[in-house]
Write a protein that binds this DNA or RNA. Structure first.
Length: 234
DNA sequence: AACGGACGCAACCGCATAACT
DNA sequence: AAGTTATGCGGTTGCGTCCGT
């Protein structure tokens, strides 16, 4: 077959508009189909991702609020790296976003922890050495999200961990540690995060409520479609 | 003002699973 | 029931921007 060269990399505004309009017409399901007929030289996968992570009208943009942060932490402690599941509890946030946030957060925490754990290291100036590299591979991997087996956390970061956990100290475990210390500050119970009502606040957007509810609420789309619809016919 | 490193985000990849034929 | 295709998910990477030196 004559494979059309697939486009990769960042999306252009025109592509976005085109995608939005086609999703408006055909719904956010048949991605391969949309990818084909739209003439975007993108894979269905790519289209879906773009829609879910960027174009979806219900998306919140900008910084995570403290409540969201807390919720992420809490849910992660319960569910681990189930990003999509966690994302469903945060209206307007995507799994990708949460995943990115978590990585960033872990990086910070790991740094702080390392600093705290090694006061005798007395090297405030060594901050540029930032974090541990895997002693064997030389790769930095401390914030790996919990893949068992990779010894990603340097021993300096987990001074209190039992050595018997040689098969891998997951991010869950690390985070539990961190949580404990945070809770000491907040005196809050792990699950009683401060915004339990969020699950219900999402009723206007589809992506984030679908745990039990179905997408009937997925209202045939938003003003942008009207605008985009025009361009579809061009 | 220039440079280098850290950070944050968007996008891709590979795998698992659901849906369909 | 088996094979194929589409979709969803988690992990990883690339790159632009920010910030400190």
């Amino acid at each position: 077959m004559v494979e059309q060269e697939m486009r990769k990399g960042p999306w252009t505004e025109q592509e976005d508009i085109k995608l939005m309009s086609f999703v408006g017409f055909f719904g956010d399901r048949r991605w391969d189909f949309i990818a084909k007929i739209s003439g975007l030289h993108r894979t269905g996968k790519s289209c879906r991702l773009r829609w879910v992570n960027y174009l979806h009208p219900g998306l919140k943009r900008g910084k995570m609020t403290p409540q969201e942060e807390r919720l992420v932490l809490d849910l992660h402690s319960k569910w681990g790296n189930r990003w999509s599941r966690i994302a469903r509890k945060l209206p307007g946030r995507t799994d990708n976003e949460i995943k990115n946030y978590w990585r960033t957060h872990m990086r910070k925490m790991a740094q702080e922890k390392k600093r705290a754990a090694a006061p005798n290291n007395l090297s405030p100036s060594s901050s540029s050495a930032s974090f541990s590299k895997n002693s064997t591979t030389g790769e930095e991997s401390f914030y790996d999200t919990g893949g068992p087996g990779d010894n990603m956390i340097s021993s300096t970061e987990i001074p209190m961990i039992g050595q018997d956990q040689e098969e891998g100290y997951s991010m869950d475990d690390i985070w539990k540690d961190i949580e404990v210390s945070e809770e000491n500050n907040n005196s809050e119970e792990g699950c009683n995060f401060s915004c339990p009502s969020w699950e219900y606040s999402a009723t206007s957007d589809s992506l984030w409520v679908m745990d039990e509810e179905e997408s009937q609420i997925f209202d045939p789309f938003f003003p942008c479609y009207e605008q985009a619809g025009a361009s579809l016919l061009l």
